[in-house]
């Protein structure tokens, strides 16, 4: 599944990082602790978080994550947007809270939705 497929299926907002719309998504990781994601997320997992600063993109890039999804209507700050464009890692958004988004995404990735 590609990042663009997620956007359509879950009606996500695309803030920036259009160059990465074809990035492959194999799973997801939910965390707001950067070291947790750094140490334990796997390549290909989209990152669901409420952190909106550019260090998120530094971690996403170092760990080859295909996209970041911000929950609860949160928006990336200016530096996060720039970093996203530079790295080609899309930052997406939703008004859903983490639990609901993670549940929907889980069903989608497991072919249950």
């Amino acid at each position: 599944m590609k990042v663009s497929d997620l956007i359509i299926a879950l009606n996500l907002h695309l803030f920036c990082g259009d160059d990465g719309l074809d990035n492959e998504v194999s799973g997801a990781y939910v965390s707001d602790l950067l070291s947790d994601v750094m140490g334990f997320a796997k390549e290909g997992e989209v990152w669901i978080t409420l952190q909106t600063h550019q260090n998120v993109l530094a971690v996403a890039s170092l760990r080859d994550l295909p996209a970041v999804i911000l929950v609860k209507g949160l928006e990336p700050d200016a530096e996060m947007r720039q970093h996203s464009e530079r790295e080609g890692i899309p930052v997406l958004g939703t008004s859903m809270p983490t639990f609901e988004l993670a549940g929907r995404l889980y069903m989608l990735l497991k072919g249950m939705e």
């Binding site: 707001d32 602790l33 950067l34 070291s35 947790d36 750094m38 140490g39 978080t49 952190q51 600063h53 260090n55 998120v56």
Partner: peptide, 14 residues
């Protein structure tokens, strides 16, 4: 910012 969870040095060791 999501740093300072006390996981850094364990990540390094691991």
């Amino acid at each position: 910012m999501g740093f300072g969870a006390g996981m850094g040095l364990s990540n390094i060791k691991r």
